[in-house]
Design a protein around this nucleic acid. Structure first.
Lengths: 330, 330
DNA sequence: GTGAAAGCGCTAACAT
DNA sequence: ATGTTAGCGCTTTCAC
């Protein structure tokens, strides 16, 4: 079932059929309709490989994430993939498992099969990305590299709101449990939270780096307790949940003895007991926006100099893991 | 950077370069090494579109799931994708959003760009799948259709273990909250749990169908209470968690007043409080096995008659949502 | 507005 | 064991 069959059925030449199919208005309306009808009747589907070979465009996108199983990603993947599909693109989803070597190899392989890639990976070194970005349109998520487009989430503002929330409840000694070294999100939080704490006149101890997982949170518990903080902000929901678990083992109750805030607003946080107060990250919108930016770059035809940055708002979702400090303890 | 350049650099003809690259032993060892060296030096990556056009094989796989954001899927996706990549395949991940129309259209589109698809979708009608399966190698997960390969999880055994666990604890009136109509998993559970209940001499009320979500669980709560059951098995972790939530609103405590068991063993269940007793589904192994089955079918060259079924074991993970029945209530 | 023909990069007969 | 050639299905000049 090739374009040949369609052309024959419609009584036109292949090239005419091709034109009719590729939305060219270079073909008389009546002819186009005849071709389209024939294609529909025969159930014709273009061979994307052949199309890619001539045009040099695959209509495929790559989406590279560090860990599909981290609940931060599924909504982003889901949204990106749905958005791309509506626009006629399929997406390869690849998981680097936080392994930088895998990642670089992966990008190289993918490079020939996609028109662009959305990269949500905190670990790969800037210069590697920059080099790779020379060959292929990239859109970064939650990461900034000069010359590359990016979708950013305003986690700085989220961190400020988190500090303000805790300070407003009466906490005067806070702790921030940072994420992995080199994480843009972590750096943003650190800076913004530090400033907000200074503004509010409360103390903030910055702890880390830590693994962005429940284990990371558990591991950080002892250190948090050592600071004497009564309010703590975790790098993400998983870390916050780990913290709550770790605290529980030390007999410290949340939120009665200590308040905990996460970041991301994942299912995990919603299901946790106590339900987690968290900075909601717009993961689904970020997925859509990243795809938009990428397609915009691709379709503008000027891949090299069409750098765009979009920042998406975050918001604080107050649930049950935060409360005023226990007066009896201070 | 084409195979031409590589051939030229190695001082051989294109076809020789091609042979050397495609692992043919049809080329003298020394020549092959020269070609490989040249390819490596030039950073050559084959154009997969061109390759696909000539061979008719894309080295792409499709993975169609009903909802990426359902915590059941990410581990399966992650495993499938990693496994495929090691074997030289990329995977398109597509989410049907539980929409049958989307799904069929999607498969049609994907059909031309992949060598086979792994389908994890409870909803699409058997005959549609069977028709589609005629054109393209399919591997089903948790679903059986004559003539198609499948990876099954032994949820029947899991259901038996769940019933036995509750009966062993002393419960005599159980309820099973089923999943969506037409779900293979749900049917398996229903049959096996019914048998196990009869064997154990306990009563089992079967409820449903229900949405496979937290909401579905919440919605089923009243009906569960009406049965007078003291032990209930949910279709999956999400439903079980919804049940616990719904029960909490009715002032019924888990596990003190009522025991709840889920199915899947997702993060959600692990993070829930009380931590959920659940039937662990081997999602990651299933992803790998599905890919293996698919590649096996592809590489055996006999796509039509190479039907294989693999059943993976499940196990009961006992945590905090189950306990002996409250003696004061019966 | 439509037909003719070239060619994208690669593999697979077919030669030798 | 290697070179030669045709052609996969499609788009895109180039003619007319």
């Amino acid at each position: 079932m090739t374009i040949r069959d369609v052309a024959q059925a419609a009584g036109v030449h292949v090239s005419t059929a091709s034109r009719a199919l590729t939305a060219s208005h270079l073909v008389k309306k009546e002819t186009r309709e005849r071709v389209l009808a024939a294609a529909a009747r025969l159930g014709y589907r273009p061979n994307e490989s052949a199309r890619a070979l001539t045009t040099g465009r695959t209509r495929n996108l790559g989406l590279i994430v560090s860990d599909i199983a981290n609940p931060f990603f599924p909504p982003l993947i889901k949204a990106a993939q749905a958005h791309a599909r509506v626009r006629g693109y399929q997406v390869f989803v690849a998981d680097t498992d936080e392994d930088v070597r895998v990642e670089e190899e992966l990008i190289q392989t993918l490079a020939r099969q996609v028109d662009g890639v959305v990269l949500v990976s905190p670990r790969l070194a800037d210069d590697v990305i920059a080099r790779l970005g020379g060959d292929l349109p990239f859109v970064l998520v939650n990461r900034q590299i000069t010359g590359l487009s990016a979708v950013l989430m305003d986690v700085a503002h989220g961190a400020v709101r988190a500090v303000e929330h805790l300070a407003g409840l009466g906490h005067t000694r806070l702790a921030l449990v940072c994420g992995p070294r080199g994480s843009w999100t972590s750096a943003q939080m650190r800076r913004a939270a530090g400033q907000a704490a200074a503004d509010a006149g409360v103390r903030l101890d910055v702890l880390g780096p830590n693994a962005p997982t429940e284990q990371g949170g558990i591991a950080a518990t002892a250190e948090v307790l050592r600071t004497g903080a009564t309010g703590v902000i975790g790098y993400n929901d998983l870390v916050a949940i780990g913290l709550i678990e770790g605290l529980d083992e030390h007999g410290v109750r949340v939120p009665d003895d200590l308040s905990v805030i996460g970041v991301d607003d994942t299912v995990a946080g919603r299901l946790n007991r106590p339900r987690l107060t968290t900075v909601a990250m717009p993961t689904a919108p970020a997925g859509r926006t990243a795809v938009d930016l990428l397609l915009q770059t691709l379709e503008s035809g000027e891949p090299d100099h069409a750098t765009a940055q979009t920042t998406l708002a975050t918001s604080l979702v107050v649930r049950d893991s935060t409360a005023p400090p226990d007066q009896s303890r201070g």
